[in-house]
Design a protein around this nucleic acid. Sequence first.
DNA 1: GTTGTTCTACCAATTAGTCGGTAGATTTCC
DNA 2: GGAAATCTACCGACTAATTGGTAGAACAAC
Lengths: 203, 203
Amino acid sequence: MRDTRAALLLQAETLVRRRGYAGFSYADLAETVGIRKASIHHHFATKSDLAHALVAAYDARYDAALAGIRADEPDAIGRIAAYGALYLGGVEAGLGCLCAVLAIEGEALPASLRADIVGFFEKHIAWLEGVLAEGIAAGCVRASVEPGPTARMVIAALEGALLMERLLAGPAGFRGTLTALCDGLRAAGSVPTGVSSHRIDTI
Amino acid sequence: MRDTRAALLLQAETLVRRRGYAGFSYADLAETVGIRKASIHHHFATKSDLAHALVAAYDARYDAALAGIRADEPDAIGRIAAYGALYLGGVEAGLGCLCAVLAIEGEALPASLRADIVGFFEKHIAWLEGVLAEGIAAGCVRASVEPGPTARMVIAALEGALLMERLLAGPAGFRGTLTALCDGLRAAGSVPTGVSSHRIDTI
DNA sequence: GTTGTTCTACCAATTAGTCGGTAGATTTCC
DNA sequence: GGAAATCTACCGACTAATTGGTAGAACAAC
């Protein structure tokens, strides 16, 4: 049995992450999946329905990854390094972050989709804020770090690095940024931890 | 006298920065400028010609701003804060960075345009690397900072913050990220400097 | 009167989305 | 268990609108 809906979601996601939301068409998607254009409408009535489903699936995958990192990595800096490694997967595959791509085209997008994206980012900011606060309490993160603004700065740096290094220096460039980022957060006495092996499942 | 070419560049830039390259059309641009669609082709034969001119003008404006900051701000952290304030202008106006927008749609863009964008980012990385190296030598930037990777991290954080905070917390969110970024670079003994008043001219 | 600018009027291609219909399962009901 | 009804997945053939781009005439300015 062939799960067409899943194939559509998978291929649509890579198309959006490669070329943007306005940059791919139902015709493109139909061709890569090997189905007729009209049949896509059977699964996703409109393009924005498809986009919603895309964000929901992406968000769910990240939820799982975030929970996994929290469970596997005891150290705050290790958790942030592992979180950054999720983005590294995108650089390696030549794919931007789905939500960053959609955020950039924000103005031209349906408002409900924008709300989904805001929710995605705010969830990640809250997660990082918690990680940083715990890290400060445990003494592995610099005491002068403010968890709120720094959480925003961390995710901004990773989103920005994914955006840039995909075109510039690739994975090597991204790893440099991630290391510089972690080094700036670590408390003076704390020992660096290695790069984690966390991966976002699909793609 | 009415400089149509300049008006086209100005309006096209805001359209791209709001909706993306694939997200605006010659019809949109014609309407905002108050000209017929065919007349645009007289000034910019193809859409990618227009995009090239857009990047060239944007790049030139940043060149001037970078030189101004270097001349006016003696301190490395002050220079980076001033550089970040350029991006703040985008957040306030609700506009993304032109090159970030184009970078995201990279795969769907003409290759020559991609090269322009790579050049833009590399120039800024080199500028920041110089600023950081001088700052370390002067003692206002943490000695453990590595100028190369950290320069990439700084621009990534600013690009990412512009991307995100345009949708999330606006200028206040961006300022928080900028402060957290600068705080992470400053040497322990160094005194914080205020936010500069540097602005990118047009828009 | 020539040069630069803008216009009207068009073009072929592509866009998202609709239409009526079909083959094959699955369910319902006697 | 077998007929009838319903549902799922897909298709070819559309549509109206929009896409970037072209040809040639009108108009302006020096």
